[in-house]
Amino acid sequence: MLSKSFNIGHLNIKNRLIAAPMAGISDLPFRSLCYQFGAGLAFSEMFLANEQIWHTEQSLQKMASKHELGIKAVQIVGSDPDEMAKTAELNVIHGAELIDINMGCPAKKVNKKLAGSALLQYPNLVEQILLNVVQAVNVPVTLKIRTGWDKAHKNCIEIAQIAQRCGIKAITIHGRTRECLFKGLAEYDSIKEVKKNITIPVIANGDITCPEKANEVLKYTNADAIMIGRAAQGKPWIFEDIGFYLENKSLKPEKNIDEVKQIVLQHIKSIHQFYGEKKGLLIARKHVFWYTQNYINSDHFRRLFSAINHATQQIDALEAFFCTITVKS
């Protein structure tokens, strides 16, 4: 099942496992780990359609990188059709091989600007944005949505059909409405119905947290691929675990402490290198929180780790921590 590759436009995606675009998380160091552990595609965190900030270091760091291990896929977010087209063009000029349009983000600060999932309320505007972006670039364009604005207005089938008519090459659907945020359980009936009503690839997203769930969602929805988001935080090797299960119908043995330590150290060092020490120290903290949260007495370590102000001391502290930890039962 895993070995079933699929195409997004002219791009061949080697398997059915995709790393989600997550704001403040899906940077180059994180995407590199996802690719290293078997993701067929990894999207960047969302790039704002705002010319006034394109020159900033933060925006430049979100663009495609020559160091990308896999396909250079950049997600963009905004509400103005012309600005979205310009944003797509800019990123393609800087090396993006695939553009993804965010119409799924539920954050208030995004929605109040009529971007992200707020756009699902306005199918005509959705259509204009999609047409403008598709016509502006010569790379495949994909779309990420939720099932609708709220449970009374689930319109993912309508939006998916609009997307297909506009030339969108694949669509990802998170199995919640915007109203749900990340509460409750994701549902997959809507994704299954979208798959029945369009011919472009459909990617299922939401609450896929383990190999068994990944297999279940793929079978139930008949989706072309699954997208993993929060479950990869602190466990980027989840793609490897899911891939093993899909191929062998058995669970891959858990990584031992030394293997986890090496992954964490590799990640934190790459964060320091990518962002520089000052910013890297801050970003490393949240990843270390996720990596260490399942170990006994890790709360005390994280408090101490948050007070460290030098990159080398962060590495030394992690080395020491992994020499003393035990796994929670």
Rank of each mutant, 00 (worst) to 15 (best):
Asn111Cys: 08
Asn111Trp: 04
Lys112Arg: 08
Lys113His: 11
Lys113Val: 00
Leu114Lys: 04
Leu114Ile: 10
Ala115Val: 02
Gly116Thr: 00
Gly116Asp: 00
Ser117Cys: 05
Leu119Tyr: 15
Leu119Gly: 12
Leu120Ile: 05
Leu120Tyr: 14
Tyr122His: 14
Pro123His: 06
Pro123Met: 03
Pro123Trp: 01
Pro123Arg: 08
Asn124His: 15
Leu125Gln: 15
Val126Ile: 15
Glu127His: 12
Glu127Trp: 09
Gln128Met: 11
Ile129Tyr: 03
Leu130Arg: 05
Leu130Asp: 13
Leu131Gln: 15
Gln135Ala: 13
Gln135Leu: 09
Gln135Met: 12
Ala136Asn: 12
Val137Thr: 12
Val137Met: 11
Asn138Trp: 14
Asn138Met: 11
Thr142Cys: 06
Thr142Glu: 13
Ile145Asn: 06
Ile145Gln: 06
Arg146Leu: 04
Arg146Tyr: 03
Gly148Asn: 05
Gly148Cys: 07
Asp150Ser: 11
His153Tyr: 07
His153Phe: 04
Lys154Phe: 00
Lys154Arg: 11
Asn155Leu: 06
Asn155Glu: 15
Cys156Gly: 06
Ile157Ser: 03
Ile157Met: 06
Glu158Arg: 01
Ala160His: 03
Ala160Arg: 01
Ile162Phe: 02
Ala163Asn: 03
Arg165Ser: 00
Arg165Tyr: 01
Cys166Tyr: 03
Lys169Thr: 06
Ala170Gly: 00
Ile171Trp: 02
Ile173Ser: 04
His174Ile: 00
His174Ala: 02
His174Pro: 01
Arg176Lys: 14
Thr177Phe: 03
Thr177Gln: 02
Thr177Pro: 02
Arg178His: 08
